[in-house]
C-alpha cells in the first residue's frame, strides 16, 4: 500500500498538522519509503494469532471511588498560553 498527495493532505488534516503545499510531495516520498519497508510484514502468517493486548500479565487495577484530586485550578491553568478566570481561552468555536 502507498499514499498519494491527497491521502497525505487528508492525514495531515486528521492529525491537525498544517502541511505547506511544497512539503506534501516530499512527505509522500518519506511515508511511502516507510510503508514499503513495513510491507514485509505481509510475509508473516498471522492466521489464528491473537493481537497482543498487553505485555503485562495482570488484571486491570481499579481504584476506589474517592475524591483525591482536583481543587487546584491555579496549577491546572498555570501553563495556559491564554486564560482568564481559570478558564482556558481559545479562538471562538462555532458550533
Amino acid at each position: 500500500m502507498s499514499v498519494d498527495k491527497d491521502t497525505v493532505r487528508r492525514i495531515a488534516k486528521l492529525a491537525r498538522i498544517a502541511l505547506e503545499e511544497e512539503r506534501v510531495e516530499p512527505m509522500v516520498q518519506e511515508l511511502n519509503g516507510i510503508l514499503a519497508w513495513v510491507e514485509q510484514l505481509e510475509e508473516v502468517d498471522v492466521e489464528g494469532v491473537a493481537p497482543l493486548t498487553s505485555v503485562v500479565a495482570q488484571k486491570l487495577k481499579m481504584r476506589d471511588d474517592v475524591v483525591t484530586d482536583g481543587g487546584d485550578a491555579d496549577a491546572v491553568t498555570a501553563n495556559a498560553p491564554l486564560g482568564e478566570d481559570h478558564f482556558f481561552v481559545v479562538p471562538k468555536v462555532v458550533e
Partner: peptide, 9 residues
C-alpha cells in the same frame, strides 16, 4: 468554579 474539579489527568 471553572476547572476546580480537574486533575492533571
Amino acid at each position: 468554579e471553572p476547572n476546580a474539579h480537574v486533575s492533571f489527568v
